[in-house]
Design a protein around this nucleic acid. Structure first.
Length: 780
DNA sequence: CGTCGGCATATTTTT
DNA sequence: TATGCCGACG
């Protein structure tokens, strides 16, 4: 078969083996995604139906990338029906939305994100009169999450003396009680948190053999990406499905050396024991394939990474190698201070940029903790080096976005307690904390949802005065009116109504300082997102799936990086090593290689965690294609104080013959000490904010594209986002679209409200636009 | 109800 | 240093 010619022997063997279980250990840069996508293509070519493939990844980004690649091979029709390809959470959520009634959940359940979970826990802790200082919501949630990921129910939690003792040692002996209430409250709110999506899927399959059988029959092949990151419950679900399959076939791809998420419950033992956990039909161990040729990095980089990782005990034997150039040695540059460290990095960026004649986007600064970005930001700003910081708040976590989504959620599922609390008084409608407390008490006593209470104030004996009662009723009617419309209006139309009638638009559009503007732009971006969603569904001929519930399913699990992609000016990337997984750069700086930072002092006590830190550095180094530079600082400004640090032990673990440098840099920099810090703060020095600065809310903006929606909102509150000059559009016209840029109209069809145009954009591909919504100007 | 100032607090974070 | 949260106040 043609497509196999692009693969090396090991890759091809892994792709071609489809008759039983297999584990593919894919060393860094060895073409893991390639194998995965080619394998899917191979299975399809062998006649397997797309629906019969269960393909699971961890991130939306990975899922998307895979779909894109396969679409390139199979054409446009492909992505219309990738029902069982996606993240663990999204695929299981999809299954649960269909099956949840069988385990006592209405199918319109909402998904609580991390913030919702914490907020709920906070309320519970408060209600139980526990000390919030002791029972920190995040810490409590971590415990509960750990329990869920290990399929430990409330009852087993309570009766497990080990666990209870751990809690006691952590001075939180009552977590079991909180856990019980939390589960109960999620049920009442008809909500599942991220972990529940897995736990309830597991329970669904355990409790309902018929459902398990159904999916067991449906799936002919299971594929899992990043298997080293799976946790216990994920493994158990896979195992159930696997055993229910008629012909047992699963392929897990991963790299034990890149397991860096154990603090999230990932269990490296899963990958180490895969071949035993998933035996073939006749009871033999699963086949093991190893991809050991690295195509990404120089020999030196690969060998350096190898020499480091060999200090780990617990790993699958493999020898990653490269046939690329030998390349330069790893550069080790110790600095006197964090400030000087940034200076050295900046200098080296300029040097390599000149030497290799490459763009700023070829460089990445990788650090252990987000807080380390500061000194680099300051130095880059001073030198005019464009940069972008990854991480920080994701779009969907921004307050204004969460507020709107809370409305959506409440409309879709009025029992959603967190959504209710969020918007009951936003925008301000005179329903204060006291009233909410009363509702909470009342709901609690009667074991019903908040919504239920305000719908039957007398029946539940809610003790509020007449004025408050009127306000509550008004709120209830507002939401009800949205509910009534939610099945007839598509999500964009509904969103428009919600934003307007709830007076959110008034609230957000009124201000005009920098923060307000940022919020407005976020709102606009959100609206275009909905628009794109509707347009996309339309394009796929699925207008019956362009309603609120469909949108929420999509958006609930979309956390970050998705709104990525304005490829403007090339910039240096700054991010944590965790965030860099799966990426590659010509030049990588791994900074802050000091004891007390990397390895993290909290991890350095146990061998297991220390090994994970080592894998973390392994991941960092193997991101580099050509140049890898390690730095650290002898003195670091931290928590307002100057602190002394020794170089990281990991530096000594790398084969010394592969490293050059090490002598303290005789860089000119005078002192690098305190002196200059105050002087060049955000005010002084080069003052004005550069275009690549993060705005206050940490979000990138797009100045050019932002105007239309906002101005229309402010100027003319009636026909919301009526499109520009749609009337005079003709086939062959060139237009400039607000989001997609310049394109040519290929076809116009439909009339009036439903007129749509097929437009081929220069950079965004071919899109169908509903003229009613599309915002563009006609160029010719 | 919203804002100001004092005080504790300070990993990594796919969903 | 810088952020986030609570309590006091207008």
């Amino acid at each position: 078969m043609d497509l196999l010619n692009d693969l090396n022997d090991a890759q091809r063997a892994a792709v071609e083996y489809i008759d039983g279980p297999s584990l593919v250990i894919a060393g860094a840069g060895s073409g893991k995604t390639r194998v995965l996508t080619y394998k899917i293509a191979y299975l399809l070519a062998k006649g397997k139906d797309l629906y019969s493939l269960l393909v699971l990844t961890f991130t939306n980004k990975a899922a998307k990338e895979m779909v894109e690649r396969i679409r390139k091979m199979f054409g446009e029709t492909f992505y219309i029906r990738q029902k069982y390809m996606g993240t663990f959470h999204s695929v299981f959520a999809r299954i649960l939305h269909v099956e949840s009634d069988k385990i006592g959940f209405p199918s319109d359940f909402t998904i609580y994100d991390e913030a919702d979970s914490r907020s709920l826990l906070k309320s519970i802790i408060k209600e139980m009169d526990m000390n919030e200082k002791v029972y920190k919501p995040a810490a409590v949630h971590a415990r509960i999450s750990m329990a869920k990921n290990h399929l430990i129910s409330v009852d087993s939690y309570e009766s497990d003396s080990d666990i209870i003792n751990q809690d006691k040692r952590a001075k939180m002996p009552e977590i079991a009680k909180i856990y019980r209430e939390y589960v109960q409250r999620c049920r009442l709110a008809n909500a599942m948190d991220f972990d529940d999506l897995l736990v309830y899927t597991y329970r669904l399959f355990i409790e309902r053999k018929d459902v398990l059988e159904k999916y067991g029959n449906l799936f002919k092949y299971i594929m899992v990406d990043e298997y080293q990151d799976t946790n216990y419950v994920q493994k158990k679900i896979l195992s159930l499905l696997y055993n229910a399959m008629q012909e047992k076939a699963i392929c897990a791809v991963g790299d034990d050396s890149q397991s860096i998420y154990s603090f999230r419950g990932a269990d490296i033992d899963n990958i180490l024991s895969f071949t035993k956990d998933f035996p073939s039909q006749d009871g033999k161990e699963a086949k093991l394939f190893k991809l050991e040729q690295n195509y990404r990095s120089t020999q030196t980089i690969v060998e350096a990474a190898n020499s480091l990782i060999h200090h780990n005990r617990n790993q699958i034997q493999k020898e990653v190698f490269s046939k690329n150039d030998k390349g330069e040695k790893i550069l080790y540059k110790p600095a006197y201070s964090d400030k000087e460290e940034a200076l050295i990095v900046a200098k080296n960026i300029q040097r390599i940029k000149r030497q290799d004649d490459c763009g700023y986007d070829q460089f990445a600064i990788l650090y252990r903790t987000n807080a380390q970005s500061r000194s680099f930001e300051e130095e880059f700003r001073k030198q005019g080096i464009p940069y972008r910081i990854y991480g920080g708040l994701s779009f969907y976590q921004r307050k204004e976005i969460k507020d709107i989504i809370a409305y959506f959620r409440l409309v879709a599922n009025p029992d959603d307690e967190e959504a209710f609390k969020r918007i009951i008084n936003y925008p301000a409608r005179g329903i204060g904390a006291t009233t909410v407390m009363k509702i909470a008490d009342c709901a609690h006593q009667n074991q019903v949802s908040f919504w239920e209470v305000i719908g039957n104030v007398e029946h539940y004996g809610l003790n509020v005065n007449k004025g408050t009662q009127t306000k509550l009723e008004k709120f209830r009617l507002l939401i009800s009116s949205f509910i009534d419309r939610s099945h007839t209006l598509d999500v964009y139309e509904l969103g428009d109504a919600i934003i307007r009638e709830s007076r959110i638009s008034e609230d957000i559009m009124s201000g005009k300082n920098a923060d307000d503007l940022a919020r407005q732009e976020n709102l606009e971006e959100f609206l275009s997102g909905m628009q794109t969603f509707v347009a996309g569904r339309q394009e796929e001929g699925r207008m019956d799936e362009a309603y609120l519930t469909d949108y929420l399913q999509d958006v609930a699990l979309l956390t970050d990086a998705d709104s990525e992609g304005e490829k403007d000016e090339p910039r240096v990337s700054l991010m944590t090593i965790h965030a860099a997984k799966g990426l590659e750069f010509a030049t990588v700086f791994v900074v802050g290689l000091e004891e007390n930072i990397f390895p993290s002092p909290l991890a350095a006590i146990s061998v297991r965690e220390l090994e994970e830190e080592r894998r973390l550095l392994y991941v960092a180094i193997t991101r580099a294609e050509k140049h890898c530079i390690l730095t650290n600082a002898k003195n670091r400004f931290r928590y307002g104080k100057m602190e002394f640090d020794n170089p990281s032990r990991f530096i000594d673990e790398i084969d010394a013959s592969l490293i050059e440098g090490g002598e303290e840099a005789p860089e000119s920099s005078f002192g690098g000490g305190r002196s200059s810090y105050g002087g060049y703060g955000s005010e002084g020095g080069y003052g004005g904010r550069m275009p690549w600065d993060r705005d206050r809310s940490g979000y990138r903006r797009d100045y050019q594209n932002s105007k239309p929606v906002a101005s229309q909102f402010m100027a003319d509150p009636k026909p919301a986002f009526a499109s520009s000059a749609a009337g005079s559009l003709c086939e062959g016209c060139r237009i400039e679209h607000q989001r997609f840029g310049i394109g040519t109209v290929l076809k116009i069809e439909g009339t009036g409200e439903n007129t749509k145009a097929t437009v081929e954009f220069q950079n965004a591909g071919t899109k169908q636009l509903l003229l009613k919504f599309a915002k563009f100007t006609i160029l010719s």
